[in-house]
């Protein structure tokens, strides 16, 4: 091993194999999925998002929410279904519209794949961003007061002002109004729902085992 070129060639070969097998092969094999059309489930799946939710997604990325929240549901391990985080396994086709995809790998808070189903109310999310202690006492999620404007009420109070309970309310004559950013983020949260089925997505551990048994049978 006294020659540089030998080491370079060896390294090149190993990294080429690793890259080809781990990244290139799967992206070629299953990384070019298309949306499917299913009349019974209301059209093209996965469903598209709207503009406000897209803006909210950009803010989600900017604030680094991914540091604590995943967006993937597993059925083969864990208690994701029992916790009500989803009704089936997340599969690659669910993410085809997402660039960048916010899959995540750490859960210091709940999974958000279906948060729009669990919490369909945008106002709940706005109050939660303003101060998480309002709805989830004891949470260690940061508050985002800078997404809101606390201002003096001049004339009529704003219709968009947050209804804050007791100690969280601003002093008399003031109101807390969400900025467009906060509203976009709330719109993104309520848009997060996987309320459709895909043929390839197993719905439970048993369904997965059954599928495997069928596949093994046909392989014989």
């Amino acid at each position: 091993m006294n020659r540089g070129p030998f080491i370079f060639l060896g390294m090149f070969a190993i990294l080429a194999v690793s890259w080809t097998v781990v990244l290139y092969k799967p992206t070629q094999q299953t990384g070019r999925l298309a949306a499917v059309y299913d009349e019974a489930q209301g059209g093209v799946l996965p469903r598209g998002t709207n503009g406000a939710a897209e803006q909210g997604k950009a803010l989600y990325q900017e604030l680094g929410c991914i540091a604590c929240h995943t967006q993937q549901v597993r059925v083969a391990s864990g208690f994701d279904l029992e916790r009500g985080w989803g009704s089936r396994q997340s599969v690659a086709r669910d993410y085809i519209d997402q660039t960048p995809a916010l899959v995540g790998n750490t859960r210091l808070g709940p999974d958000l794949t279906n948060v729009g189903l669990r919490r369909p109310d945008a106002d709940w999310h706005l109050a939660h961003f303003y101060n998480p202690q309002i709805a989830s006492k004891g949470s260690n999620m940061p508050a985002f007061p800078y997404l809101f404007e606390t201002r003096e009420i001049v004339g009529e109070p704003s219709a968009r002002a947050l209804k804050l309970p007791g100690t969280f309310a601003p002093k008399d004559g003031f109101e807390v109004v969400p900025t467009r950013k906060a509203e976009a983020l709330a719109a993104y949260m309520t848009s997060l729902k996987v309320d459709y089925d895909l043929a390839e997505a197993p719905k439970s551990k048993d369904a997965m085992a059954e599928e495997l048994a069928v596949a093994l049978e046909s392989a014989k």
Partner: peptide, 23 residues
């Protein structure tokens, strides 16, 4: 360079970005 190309320049499809990232 492989990660930058497959994540930013010519992003891999959806979930596969997470694969590139973990690699």
């Amino acid at each position: 360079s492989a990660a930058q190309i497959m994540l930013v320049c010519a992003p891999a499809q959806g979930a596969f970005q997470a694969l590139v990232n973990s690699w």
